[in-house]
Design a protein around this nucleic acid. Structure first.
Lengths: 228, 228
DNA sequence: CTGAGAGTACGACGACGGCCGAAGTATTCC
DNA sequence: GGAATACTTCGGCCGTCGTCGTACTCTCAG
């Protein structure tokens, strides 16, 4: 009973367009300043400050002071998963109508989803790994196979964070543009940081979108036969 | 961009206390009438009708007409997972203060979480299955072992819905009272319907709580060495 | 056919909350 | 030290939305 009210409080925080924009931008995975967030939210810095205060008060975002800047980020993986789950519901309902835009195209191509890669890139990556039986991906869970562990370790993906009880599980995350699963959780995070380290993908300003570098195109084509 | 607004719309629907109560009650897994829902929401039937209309319009709940009653239920598993994810965030933040009540105690003991069992019962069940290595449960995914498949099949749990690609994966779901994982997804659903079929648990009026029957206590003690 | 109960549509009231302008604090650059 | 930038706080305005009373439709029981 009492918990229901708290559920409403949390949901109401996400339920404001300005705050939803802020949280969505923070789902890029990086910490952003209050001013940058004001830009993406489309409201004044004062209003943004108020919103961020509320989100911080509810432990939805974390705050780190650095000089005269204040960086905000998603507080916990649970919060990220909650936002993913909401987006999954949004994706399941008919898409109504969407005028295509340049920024949206970039997002559709490749973007970060908190700590892993989504968009066409994320979905294709998952497809290839499943095709080669390096990963088994079910509707509600997944697992890296033993040959998958070998393969990923060989190309330099660090699975140590995902390793628990010998098996490496991973979480499927439904993509809201492609409507198909991609690889989330610890394995997804390992893959994403691997791609970033190799500079095969690069983050784009204050957006969730990531750009695939020329080296990335070559490398992805070579290793995974992915062409975007 | 445009998707963020839709995220806000969905979240805002959950963000009203009355609607949150309604959705929480429907998370019991059964379909309930508008009047019953008015009761749990604590608002008049007119107001409830308005809320249900909005929830139905956004495809969060489904509606089935039966005589002069109209039964409502959670529309899709995705919606259930979204609500679970929100509850998980709620559970992660400090519990503030909670005066214990009789109804809450029953909920804490055992309740349904859409299609699977949560509460102390759910958590203990998961613990025992993990202990005996019938199920491996990671932080973000799980799997029924081969001996687990044999065992569950033998005692009569129907895993056919969960079977895909030879492996039976399952989804951990964090319990908001116990703050520990229990078994969700298709495997959790199979376990719950097994318990209901045996009449080891029984649903309670218009609540998420379930009662453990005397036969249930005996059976759970015998098979899983669970005593509640 | 009539009455009762379930559910819905409409309208008015009232409150909560988002919004910005103005002003106040903190930090860095020159 | 002074100016500029980043961020926050305060106060008032205004729109949105939840709320219920009234009135309507629909289904079933007798």
């Amino acid at each position: 009973m009492a918990e229901d009210i708290r559920m409403a409080e949390i949901a109401a925080l996400v339920g404001d367009p300005a705050r939803a924009n802020i949280l969505s931008a923070l789902m890029g995975g990086r910490a952003l300043t209050a001013k940058e967030l004001a830009g993406v939210a489309g409201v004044s810095p004062q209003t943004t400050s108020g919103h961020l205060g509320k989100l911080f008060g509810a432990n939805l975002v974390a705050r780190v002071k650095q000089g005269r800047h204040r960086y905000f980020r998603i507080a916990t993986p649970q919060v990220a998963e909650m936002l993913e789950a909401i987006m999954a519901v949004v994706a399941a309902t008919p898409p109504r109508y969407r005028p295509p835009s340049k920024a949206d195209d970039a997002m559709r191509m490749a973007r970060t989803c908190y700590d892993h890669v989504a968009g066409m890139l994320g979905v294709q990556l998952a497809d290839r790994l499943v095709q080669r039986e390096l990963i088994i991906l079910g509707a509600e869970a997944g697992e890296v196979t033993s040959s998958g562990t070998k393969f990923l370790t060989r190309i330099g993906v660090d699975l140590s964070a995902a390793r628990a009880r010998r098996r490496v599980f991973c979480r499927p995350c439904v993509d809201w543009t492609e409507r198909r699963p991609h690889i989330g959780g610890a394995v997804g995070a390992a893959l994403a940081s691997w791609l970033l380290e190799l500079k095969w993908i690069e983050r784009v300003h204050a957006s969730r979108a990531v750009m695939i570098t020329p080296a990335g195109r070559r490398g992805l084509q070579e290793i995974f036969a992915i062409s975007l």
